[in-house]
């Protein structure tokens, strides 16, 4: 296909718009609240950034409904399985999103849901094993504040 003059112009403007949206997004107070939630979950231990993979859109079309998934590497055996996964949203009025409770009969420590994000922010997944280890993953989701959502 041929690229029209309008599209070339539009592309240039698109780059400018992306540059404009790359602003800092988490305040110190929010970071404190999230750290408190992480500490409460891990019992004070520093979670290892491993084994959890969080899937979220880079840019959410609407903050009211953001699809989010996670999967944790685990044998899910009686002796060694994931017991709990919690999702936190650093920039929401309250960081708690949901806590998932797994058993060896869950087969796999993974889940998908849809969440609300008040603005662009980090989403955090924390996982706890039956052996007492805590793992973490963190993803930034840009939430576009609509011009004209209707």
């Amino acid at each position: 296909m041929t690229i029209t003059r309008r599209q070339v112009f539009a592309l240039g403007a698109g780059v400018a718009a992306v540059a404009l949206t790359g602003l800092p997004r988490v305040t110190f107070a929010e970071e404190d609240k999230v750290q408190a939630a992480i500490d409460a979950f891990s019992g004070g231990a520093t979670p290892e950034t491993a084994n959890v993979s969080l899937t979220a859109p880079e840019i959410a079309e609407n903050g009211n409904t953001v699809p989010i998934s996670f999967a944790v590497d685990s044998p899910m055996s009686d002796d060694d399985h994931i017991t709990e996964v919690t999702l936190l949203a650093a920039g929401n009025p309250s960081p708690d999103v949901a806590t998932f409770h797994f058993t060896p009969m869950s087969g796999a420590a993974e889940a998908t849901t849809r969440m609300r994000l008040a603005k662009t922010q980090d989403v955090i997944a924390l996982a706890k094993t039956s052996t007492g280890k805590v793992y973490m993953d963190r993803k930034t989701v840009k939430v576009t504040i609509g011009g004209c959502g209707g």
Binding site: S94, A98, F102, R116
Partner: peptide, 18 residues
């Protein structure tokens, strides 16, 4: 499997798990 939900979960809650 069970899940505790907070107000940050979207309307018409969707849960997919194993």
């Amino acid at each position: 499997f069970s899940c505790d939900l907070e107000p940050a979960i979207s309307a018409n809650p969707y849960l997919e798990f194993s």
